[in-house]
Design a binder for these strands. Structure first.
Lengths: 198, 198
DNA sequence: TTTTGAACTTTCATTAAAAAAAGTCAAAAG
DNA sequence: CTTTTGACTTTTTTTAATGAAAGTTCAAAA
């Protein structure tokens, strides 16, 4: 059926995108990998952008599901967020080209806003859930969950940008940065946590 | 004397750089503004980069002096940082092209590292002084001043990047962003403050 | 319904020539 | 001796033209 065919395309495209980035991957190459023609690929996806979007959303979904698992495993608020940040670093190392490309395309004004919004919503829902549970079990003060979650996410992704900006611009991955980013993110998270814990 | 002549050059160059950015300002134009020849300008500055550096350092010094004044005026830690962040936003609106250019040049690999280091050192010294005083008067816990100051500065400049990245890339200023940046920076600062206050 | 070959259109890479800007220097001016 | 300059060279940026590559479309075949 159609859905399964699309899933194959996404899986195949993800490999190329993750390795070479969006701009260095052609529709022809993606089609070749699947032993179909470019025209056939266009039967399933009207353009490259929508394929890119589906690939991004697919990865985001995987990450989100894994984060849900981490949350369900339980633990202190700080421990859970720490696990999530570590996992995101791992994902970033795995899909770094894609991250760089994604950021660059977004910067260039490509219509990825909707996708970014979905990812943001997922991120917010995860953090909000962690904070809400923290309040429920008395670990955290009775804070404004939405507001703190948004600020924490801004801080985390701001630090990501701060350390990655040069690489994003160059379009070259730099895995060395990841431990530094994680460290800075953890330090900031701990400081914020200290202010909201009971 | 030489010093005064250089100061005139810096003042004049600052106007052009602040308005059009580094790349859209030529040495010829700067010379013209001063009613001297380009060759004469090169008598005082060996190249464009060193003039750029002096302009950046001169503005940074002004900002730093003003922040010292704010600190000396006294007040709560949060009030002082709030004033500093507001002042930085004002400076950013005034010198936005310069900020954008500076970031872009840095990204492109221009040798502005030394200058950035000086600015960082000044920023750190300000925040460290605020935190130290806060501890001394019992407003803050006995935290690791250097560490917290660095993290706070990372968070603040990360948020700046996060909101500005598209504009930095385009090279176009966008003053609308400034209130948003300030808001995010204040929210993050308050959260961190809550964790270090007594 | 799915697939394809053969188009078309847009974007990208390359090149060469011209223009603009950066940077140099010997000599003039004070 | 310091400062200034005009004329010069070198680098960088722009422009325009070309061909190639990639994105996209579509009528017809499977």
């Amino acid at each position: 059926m159609k859905a399964s065919r699309k899933e194959l395309i996404i899986a195949s495209a993800t490999k190329r995108f993750a390795h070479f980035g969006f701009s260095k991957t052609t529709m022809h190459e993606i089609a070749e990998d699947l032993h179909i023609t470019k025209a056939n690929l266009y039967y399933y996806y009207p353009d490259k952008l929508s394929l890119m979007k589906d690939v991004i959303l697919s990865i985001s979904e995987k990450v989100h599901l894994h984060e849900k698992e981490i949350i369900e495993e339980g633990g202190s608020v700080l421990a859970i967020i720490s696990k999530i940040l570590s996992h995101r670093r791992e994902m970033n190392i795995k899909y770094c080209m894609l991250q760089l490309s994604e950021n660059l395309e977004m910067i260039k004004g490509l219509e990825l806003e909707e996708v970014i919004q979905v990812i943001n919503a997922r991120d917010e829902s995860s953090i909000e859930q962690i904070l809400s549970t923290g309040i429920a079990v008395g670990e955290l003060q009775n804070i404004d969950v939405k507001d703190v979650a948004r600020t924490l996410l801004d801080v985390i992704s701001g630090l990501n940008f701060l350390c990655n900006i040069a690489d994003i611009f160059k379009g070259l991955p730099n895995p060395n940065n990841d431990s530094l980013i994680l460290e800075k993110q953890m330090k900031a998270t701990v400081l914020i946590y200290n202010g909201i814990k009971n």
